[in-house]
Design a protein around this nucleic acid. Structure first.
Ligand SMILES: [Mn+2]
Ligand SMILES: [Mn+2]
Ligand SMILES: [Mn+2]
Ligand SMILES: [Mn+2]
Lengths: 232, 232
DNA sequence: GTACAAAGTTAGAAGAGTCAAACAAATGTA
DNA sequence: TACATTTGTTTGACTCTTCTAACTTTGTAC
């Protein structure tokens, strides 16, 4: 909470700290991943011990960002959800900027965006957005929340759930670990790719697919289950 | 101080905190501006009270970044000077990137760079440097330290010290306050501009100059004393 | 329905960074 | 040289974020 003087008008501005921002973001992400979020989940995700998480939840509750009741699951308030979404907006715009305008690979941008997302500057991110042509998704296919924190999730399907004979477009990846993305790079798999499913091995659910100049590539179920596609 | 594991090799990495980085940078800048730096100078520059500065100096001395003796002027060690220069390198590369690649005005970039300079990512700043074509100076004409923290100051002269009849090239601004830069914008004065000195009023040392499509512009001594030029 | 394990909270402590109050050294002036 | 002012340090306190240890609640297995 600090004083901000603009032309003799004094307003109280309450910026969340970098630490608070990371809790909000984790809370938001876990909520999307598994519905109910417990102190324990958050503790494991942030690699911060449970007592610390409990005390931060009380603090965020005092700031009306979290609904907190002892021994109950954690829930973001509307305000908390919006603030989290706006940080994620900055994260994803940054990742897009790093890939599209600076030439980074999609496997390298996350750790940088994890830091840049905390920069406090409206024009900085507005400019990124504008230079990128107001993108709807980040380099991994995740939606970029709008200026009001609204998110539109397109209805994707897992590649693993598609049937033999279908041709689909790769639209997003579920797992964004550096290792997985490097694996996809090694197979020349990238977003927008058109993939034809030629066969499914019922024994291990591995898929024979063809795309671009590659025919008869084998993708394990582990892989096809992490790829989101659209019918075309 | 934290552990960094790279392929089973464990190394101790000691990153300076954002706070420590800001002290180092201020120490470096004040040293260039006025030679000897006292606790008081640093305290005023950072808007942090003297006792806090004293204790931080002891901490930085323990990290071998500052030579500290009670009641003596503060001096950066070679290590401290290098670390400071590398932060300033990141600051100035960022300002250049914001102006050249993102379309910001030179008057708007400082507060953003003040935050971005603390990002920990070698490839991020390497990429900026590369995309900018390895610039030697920032948007205000200040030199960008090299990867080793070496700085080359070109020999500039104040416009206020030039003589009637000379034609010079504007190469840097001493004061980089938003107000001053906006003033220069309003007169269409920017780096690289060729300026001819047509007359100097001995009474108030104001200068009559001409440049671009403007002839007989009057620049007060306050202004001409803040502009650095090269003979051409 | 008790007993145990897992999850969650409370209490107490620590380091980082900050401050105000009080004290001490250095410096400038009469 | 003596006094006043400025500069610098010490001390103790406070907030923020984190931890460990000890305790409590909840849910599950028998
Ligand atoms: Mn990411
Ligand atoms: Mn982050
Ligand atoms: Mn600057
Ligand atoms: Mn800074």
């Amino acid at each position: 909470m600090y004083l901000c003087r603009i032309n003799k008008i004094v307003i109280f501005v309450c910026m969340n700290s970098l630490t608070e921002e990371n809790y909000l973001k984790a809370l938001y992400a876990l909520g999307n991943e598994k519905g109910e979020v417990n102190v324990n989940d958050l503790s494991r995700r942030l690699e911060i011990k449970m007592p610390t998480v409990t005390s931060m939840m009380k603090k965020l509750a005092a700031k009306k960002l979290v609904h907190y009741e002892s021994y109950k699951p954690l829930r973001l308030t509307e305000k908390g959800r919006k603030e989290a979404a706006l940080i994620i907006r900055k994260h994803r715009l940054t990742e897009m900027f790093l890939v599209e305008k600076m030439g980074f690979g999609w496997e390298d941008v996350h750790p940088i965006a994890e830091q840049v997302e905390h920069i406090q500057s409206v024009p900085f991110f507005e400019k990124m957005d504008q230079l990128l042509g107001y993108p709807k998704v980040d380099p991994h296919g995740s939606p970029i929340p709008d200026r009001n924190g609204k998110v539109v999730w397109k209805e994707y399907q897992k590649l693993s759930e598609c049937k033999v004979g279908e041709t689909v477009k790769l639209s997003a990846v579920i797992n964004t670990s550096e290792d997985f993305l490097r694996f996809l790079n090694s197979r020349e798999i990238h977003l927008g790719l058109k993939v034809k499913i030629k066969a499914i091995e019922s024994f291990d659910r591995s898929m024979k697919v063809s795309y671009a100049k590659r025919s008869d590539e084998i993708l394990s179920h582990i892989v096809s289950d992490r790829l989101l596609v659209e019918k075309i």
